[in-house]
């Protein structure tokens, strides 16, 4: 029997301030002061043989959230049973409070895109995505949170805004939200979609946690690289979000060209400060 996907507001576990766990900075993450939870790329771990560092963090009581990048719930095809089984196994091995993924499609007709592509925001697509999300929710032992992506293009036949699409998806499935404010900023710079306005459309009551990351601008295009300090405009969006709701968690993503431990600690301090400052 399928689970009851309630649209009413879910109880969100308090996560606090976090950082993306990567094997290159495992000892750094273990030692960083003020880290209250971490997120691990689910595809990079084996639930039967967790990295020592993650076991250490779990023993300390830090929540560890498996973050998938390959499920593709936004595709026309149902999500892979094997990928869902892996996510479920990760959640169980890590005793995770939830699993997160992307509202994106990543493959079609057997071809892998290699990117997190935006979902066509039509009512027909919404029905398909809602069915995929329900299927994923049924396969997972913990709640699922979906992340808004940084779109590199928009579909011409879009009928809904990002916020409207997510709002209706939440209404249909009760799925939780992982809002990436850096992705909102990317869409604002590259596609002209106002980030703060998008916050008003999003169903923030379902917010599970927030992603924050840095990037680089080349030729007027913002690249969400996760390899640089978080720019002030992204922190401004975070502050605006925090003025609207109290996010259960805020997490820094940094994926390569890792700076010093002190620099990462400083980034976390900037993020913490942004969550309490008045919006600009």
């Amino acid at each position: 029997m399928a689970a009851d996907h309630r649209p009413e507001q879910a109880r969100m576990e308090r996560l606090g301030l976090g950082i993306g766990w990567r094997s290159e900075i495992d000892l750094t993450v273990e030692r960083l002061a003020g880290v209250e939870f971490v997120e691990v790329i689910a595809e990079n771990i084996r639930p039967t043989s967790l990295p020592t560092s993650l076991r250490v963090l779990r023993e300390r009581g830090l929540p560890v959230i498996p973050h998938g990048v390959s499920l593709g719930v936004g595709g026309a095809e149902p999500p892979s049973a094997a990928t869902l089984a892996h996510l479920a196994a990760c959640a169980q091995a890590l005793d995770a409070p939830l699993v997160s993924e992307h509202l994106a499609f990543v493959r079609a007709g057997g071809v892998e895109a290699g990117h997190l592509l935006p979902v066509p925001r039509t009512r027909d697509a919404l029905k398909v995505v809602a069915q995929n999300v329900r299927q994923a929710q049924d396969a997972l032992p913990v709640p699922l949170a979906l992340e808004n992506v940084a779109a590199i293009f928009g579909w011409p036949e879009d009928e809904l805004t990002d916020g409207q699409f997510l709002g209706e998806l939440v209404e249909l499935t009760g799925v939780r939200l992982l809002i990436d404010v850096a992705n909102l900023y990317t869409n604002e710079v590259n596609l002209g979609l106002p980030a703060v306005q998008a916050l008003d459309d999003l169903p923030l009551s379902q917010l599970a946690y927030v992603h924050v990351a840095g990037g680089e601008e080349h030729g007027g295009v913002w690249h969400d690289t996760h390899t640089a300090s978080v720019p002030e405009p992204v922190l401004d969006i975070l502050a605006a979000l925090c003025a609207r709701t109290d996010p259960p968690g805020v997490l820094l993503e940094w994926d390569d060209h890792y700076p010093s431990d002190d620099a990462l600690a400083a980034e976390l301090s900037r993020i913490r400060a942004a969550t309490t400052r008045p919006p600009t």
Binding site: I41, P51, S53, V69, H102, A113
Partner: peptide, 27 residues
């Protein structure tokens, strides 16, 4: 355990195909 990672530095911005490797964007 740390060697369990099958993909170094996997970015959350990757999609599809197991999610590892470079050249991804948007996560």
């Amino acid at each position: 355990g740390s060697s369990a990672s099958s993909c170094g530095g996997g970015s959350s911005s990757c999609g599809g195909g197991g999610g590892c490797g470079g050249g991804c964007g948007g996560g």
